[in-house]
Computed example of a mutant assay.
Amino acid sequence: MTVSPTRIRAVNAVAASGSFAAAARLLGISQPAVSQHVKGIEEEFGVRLFLRRNGALHPTPLCLELCDVAERMTEAENAATRILTRRNALADGHISVGLGNSMPGMALIALFNKRHPSVSISVQTGSFEEITAAVITRRVDVGVLPNVPDDGRFRRELLVRQQVVAIVNADSALASEQCLTCEQLITAPLVFRTRGSSTQRVVDRAFNGAGLNPVPLLTLDTRDGVYEAVANGIGVGFMWREGTGRTDTIRRIPVREMDRLYDEVVFAPRDDSGQVGEAFFAAAKVFGSSVLADAAAKGP
């Protein structure tokens, strides 16, 4: 036997109002319907929910327990409504963002927060494959990644065009180079990302195109892990040029076979909408326009 939420709400309304008629007015249904809900529970479960005294219905102790359940149901329903509506409300709204790299995503989040400080933000980080899957399955509202396929599934807004570069410790013999080649790098201790990384796909294509088959000294699952390995002198790693805001002694050196520029974009399912999402894309448009204007001012 089970009891429906509708019946529990009817019981709670009768307990609050003292009569079937008043409960019916509260719920916006007929008095016979309220009576049927209450009596149905009493008959099916063999219990008494109300005692009549002085013309009013008074809840039994068992009924009061059901009323506690009804209150929790109402709280849960209100919470569900807030979850479903907050992405469409800029006042006290919420947005979840998936990042493949810390930058330029964090800079964009900072701009969005400045424009809409009442919107809360949660961030999920991961590989290209992980963030793309999170966007497709709606586990995050928007993603920020390079080289997102323009295949019609996604709405996109350009943030920056950038290339993959080698990252080298300042004490490395390669640190003085202005540009590197895959042939130079094949003899160095290499630090790679795991499969699923957009960075690693570019690196693999470059070495394959040069007819080389590198064996990395170390393979790590995060960009930050690669960065720390290079900072500790373990080897040469790779990252998107604008993938971090850190300005320490790590050198970023272009690689001849990796000189192609890729678009890093904000993206979301094309059929998705909402005020908070629209505001995030608006911030992305401002951010991207500013980056492109700065690049144009610097010249080639």
Rank of each mutant, 00 (worst) to 15 (best):
R87A: 10
P59C: 09
V69A: 10
A23Q: 09
Q36R: 15
N88E: 09
L84W: 07
I29P: 05
L62E: 12
E42Q: 15
V47N: 11
E43S: 12
T60G: 10
N88F: 07
R82G: 02
R48Y: 05
P32M: 13
C67W: 02
C67S: 08
V97N: 14
R53I: 03
E75L: 14
R25P: 00
A21K: 15
F20G: 04
F50I: 09
H37T: 09
A24S: 12
R86M: 06
N88R: 06
E42A: 14
G55T: 06
K39L: 14
D68C: 05
P32E: 11
R48W: 06
A22N: 13
Q36E: 15
E75D: 09
L66S: 04
E43N: 10
I83K: 10
V97Q: 13
A33T: 15
N88C: 06
L90D: 01
H37P: 02
L49E: 06
G46C: 08
A80C: 01
H94I: 03
H94S: 05
T85C: 02
E44C: 01
L57G: 03
N88G: 13
C67Y: 00
G98Q: 11
G98P: 04
T81P: 00
G40A: 10
N88P: 02
A70S: 00
L64R: 14
I41A: 12
E65M: 14
V69H: 07
P61V: 05
A89R: 01
H94F: 07
T81Y: 01
P59D: 08
N78H: 07
G40C: 12
S19D: 10
A56Q: 13
R53C: 02
R25F: 09
L57Q: 04
A79V: 09
A33D: 13
K39Q: 14
C67L: 05
V34T: 14
L51S: 08
L62V: 03
T85W: 01
S35V: 00
G28N: 13
N78L: 14
D68N: 11
N54R: 14
D68V: 09
G55H: 09
E77W: 07
